[in-house]
Write a protein that binds this DNA or RNA. Structure first.
Lengths: 199, 199
DNA sequence: CGGAGATCTTGACGTTGACAAGATGTGGTT
DNA sequence: AACCACATCTTGTCAACGTCAAGATCTCCG
């Protein structure tokens, strides 16, 4: 048993998550986090060096968790749309992590561990897009980008409360949204689709 | 001529925009903004009451500008996809405003003027979606949501530098992405689309 | 058992956001 | 023209914060 805690680093990360959940990632204070963990105001310095360091660690943890979730659904053989659902579910069920992940300026963007975790998540989305059942979408390199943008934006809107899912069912809403992403089509082609669409 | 300036409120907003562009919306300091405007450190208080007040004013300004841009393209008779392009163009050409607009926790979300401006922009997107050329998409209430999520996410990714547009042409990239948004289709229907898609 | 290094505390410094009180300019009323 | 109510801006102050330096305490290996 080290000093005061079994694992102060972990305890500080948890306290920070608590604080983020309560006051948002911007209003968080290092001294408050230390207080929650029951240690002196300078204790976090040794573990994270910096306020930015602590938030970067949190962000890295978040991206790693997201990548793990994505990897699990990909292993389950799910298609690209379902990867998007996983993304949205992660965001809404880990709001504190997600808030830190998407907070620009609070995080050291060039941190190698953070970049690695981000790249892993991005890579999973990209390979998922390349296996899109529609060949035109699968071969289009912007499919991954469009999918990412779609689920990222939906997550943000959900967390801001700008949208509330019918019946509180986030997964169904996410599914109905990600299903909208097809290959690039012109307006006349869309007409064909809609002509084919009927009960 | 009032006191020191012709319009200190405007001068402070401009100084704040400068500061946001340089250091991001999180690192901004009221005292620094006052310094840039050449006034005392407490001058902003009277105009905005609060640090949050100043950023809320900036966000309101941003949403108003975005709504104006959207209204202009809607008046020009452009379709829903082009509204999305306008959204992305606004974000990338007013990065400081957009950063404040999407910064949660920095802004007083219940501000009436801010909400009004946000609702105006949202309403424009919604009526644009209802006029989608594809009837199945036009009648689907989630079209506006999906479109918003798509362009919002793309804007974020562009500003974070996670994506750089080919040839620096943001409009073309945005257009190719928004074109991906069709009516909800199943996989077999997608096959029909791709069968019809050829030179 | 002894010392080296990791871990945590204590103390200090400059900066910040917010508040209070006072100074200064402005416009309207008589 | 004199006055006064009010808006505007300044000065002074305070607690809280992030960061750094120096010292205390714990751990473990030789």
């Amino acid at each position: 048993m080290p000093y005061h805690h079994g694992d102060l680093r972990r305890a500080l990360l948890d306290s920070a998550l608590e604080a983020v959940a309560e006051h948002g990632p911007v209003a968080i204070s290092l001294r408050d986090v230390a207080r929650r963990a029951g240690v002196s105001h300078a204790a976090p310095t040794h573990h994270f060096g910096d306020k930015t360091g602590l938030l970067t660690a949190l962000a890295t943890e978040g991206w790693t968790g997201l990548a793990d979730d994505l990897a699990r659904t990909a292993d389950r053989g799910q298609d690209f749309a379902e990867l998007g659902v996983t993304y949205v579910l992660f965001a809404t069920s880990h709001p504190a992590h997600f808030a830190v992940m998407r907070a620009p300026g609070l995080v050291r963007g060039d941190d190698p561990e953070l970049s690695a975790a981000q790249n892993r998540a991005g890579e999973l989305l990209r390979t998922g897009a390349a296996q899109h059942r529609n060949p035109a979408a699968a071969s289009d390199p912007t499919t991954a980008l469009a999918g990412w943008a779609l689920v990222h934006g939906l997550s943000v809107l959900l967390l801001e409360g700008a949208v509330d899912p019918p019946g509180g069912n986030v997964a169904d809403l996410a599914r109905s949204i990600t299903k909208r992403l097809g290959p690039a089509v012109d307006n006349d082609e869309m007409a064909v689709v809609s002509a084919n669409k009927q009960p």
